[in-house]
């Protein structure tokens, strides 16, 4: 499983495409909002956290379609299974790899996005902490959706349809973290939501992969 994870990371490094595109997409979505709602600093500061979260959520969706698809097409997935790797282990490795290659770079870019949106400097830390805690859940839910849609020609749009409703709690608690009154409660609930997502998703994604190879 560890070898699979390093392989994934090495592949992402060599191809260097998916993650970078997601980052650029993230920044573009963030910078679209000032155009849409006006450049007033107070307005932007008010919506900054929500915008960063929604942009991160959308950016995470981008690379999901390619999470299992190439390996399913060229037979790598079957090879891995015949080598005795369980579907659950494959799913877990893929989810971790997705988080490391897509969500982690996004995290590093959040201060930049926060500056663009005139978010108060005090909120940067909370925003980044929320994303750090919440994005594993997004990768996990995304992993399930990607596994369920392996082999579909237009899987990408379907993945978005499946992931976004399920990501509502993460979004709510992630943004709630910045509320001065509810912050601590939001932190705990965000952590709980992520834990549930992480514990359920390897099995659900494995069931999806198993159905794909049957």
């Amino acid at each position: 499983m560890l070898r699979l994870l390093t392989r994934e990371l090495r592949l992402a490094w060599v191809e260097r495409s998916g993650g970078a595109i997601a980052l650029i997409f993230f920044l573009i979505v963030v910078s679209l909002f000032p155009f849409a709602v006006g450049p007033q600093p107070q307005v932007l500061a008010r919506i900054a956290a929500g915008v960063v979260w929604v942009a991160a959520l959308l950016a995470c969706l981008l690379s999901l379609e390619r999470l299992f698809q190439p390996d399913a097409e060229d037979g790598t997935l079957e090879q891995l299974v015949t080598h005795g790797l369980s579907f659950e282990a494959i799913a877990t490795a893929k989810i971790i790899a997705h988080w490391l290659t897509t969500a982690l770079p996004l995290l590093l870019l959040t201060p930049l996005a926060a500056i663009l949106l005139n978010a108060p400097a005090a909120s940067w830390g909370l925003l980044a902490a929320g994303l750090a805690l919440g994005t594993p859940a997004l990768s996990a839910i995304g992993g399930v959706a990607a596994a369920l849609t392996v082999g579909l020609r237009r899987g990408g749009i379907l993945i978005s349809l499946l992931v976004l409703p399920l990501a509502v709690p993460t979004l709510i608690f992630g943004v709630g973290l910045l509320d001065p009154l509810a912050g601590v409660a939001a932190l705990k609930w965000l952590a709980a939501t992520t834990l549930v997502a992480l514990s359920v998703s390897p099995f659900a994604a494995a069931a999806g992969l198993r159905a794909a190879l049957e």
């Binding site: 399930v144 369920l148 849609t149 082999g151 499946l162 409703p165 399920l166 509502v168 709690p169 709510i172 608690f173 709630g176 509810a182 409660a185 609930w189 939501t193 549930v196 359920v200 998703s201 659900a204 069931a207 999806g208 198993r210 159905a211 794909a212 049957e214």
Partner: peptide
């Protein structure tokens, strides 16, 4: 294949629905 995938999704959704309900109430 569709039946398998849909069944998995339905169960994931069933786990998620109470969480969504709770989070929306909280929000």
């Amino acid at each position: 294949r569709a039946a398998r995938a849909a069944a998995v999704l339905a169960l994931v959704g069933a786990v998620n629905l109470p969480i969504i309900k709770f989070s929306v109430d909280w929000w």
